Simulated scan of single mutants.
Amino acid sequence: MAEINPSAEAIRTMLGETLGRLRKANAEYFDLLEKGLGSSPLPISGQAKEICARMQHNVAATFDLGEKLIQAQDVQDALKIQSEFFQDQMRALTDQAKTMGESAMKAASAMFGTKI
C-alpha cells in the first residue's frame, strides 16, 4: 500500500526521478528538432540551429534550477536559489540579445551588400 504521509526525502527522490525523465524526454525532443533543422533546405537553418541551441541551454538551466530547489532545506534557501537563477538568466538574456542582434546585423549587411 502506498505511503500516505511520505517523508521529505521520499518526495525529493520522487521529484528527482521525475526530473530525470523530463530531461530525457527534452533531450529526445531537441535531437529530433536538430535533425529536422539539419535537413531543412531553408537558408536560415543556421540561425534556427543557433536559436535551438540557446533554447536547449535555457531549458537545461531551468532543469538545474529544479534540481537545486528539490534539495533546498527551507524557504530561505529556496529563495536564494531562485534569486541566483533569476540573476543568471538576466545575464544570459542580455548576452543572447547582444549575440542575436549582431547576427541580425551581419545578415542584413550581407543581404544589402554593405559592411557594418
Rank of each mutant, 00 (worst) to 15 (best):
M1T: 13
A2V: 09
I4D: 12
I4M: 10
N5M: 05
P6H: 06
E9G: 06
T13F: 15
T13G: 14
T13N: 14
M14E: 15
L15I: 00
G16N: 03
E17P: 02
T18P: 02
R21D: 06
L22H: 03
K24W: 08
N26R: 04
A27R: 06
A27D: 07
Y29R: 11
Y29E: 10
F30P: 00
D31H: 07
E34I: 10
L37F: 14
G38P: 03
S39D: 15
S40F: 15
S40P: 07
I44V: 12
G46Q: 08
Q47W: 09
Q47I: 10
Q47F: 13
K49T: 11
K49C: 03
A53P: 00
M55F: 08
H57L: 15
V59H: 01
A60I: 07
A61R: 00
T62I: 05
T62S: 07
T62R: 07
T62D: 08
G66F: 00
G66Y: 01
E67G: 03
K68C: 04
I70R: 01
Q71M: 15
Q71K: 12
Q73I: 05
Q73R: 06
Q73M: 12
D77W: 04
D77S: 04
D77E: 05
A78F: 08
K80I: 01
I81T: 04
I81S: 00
I81F: 00
Q82D: 03
Q82K: 08
S83F: 07
Q87T: 11
Q87S: 15
D88V: 02
M90N: 09
R91N: 04
Q96S: 15
A97W: 06
A97C: 05
A97D: 12
K98L: 09
T99S: 05
E102V: 09
S103V: 02
A104F: 09
M105F: 14
M105C: 14
K106L: 12
A107Q: 13
A108K: 13
T114C: 10
T114A: 11
I116K: 14
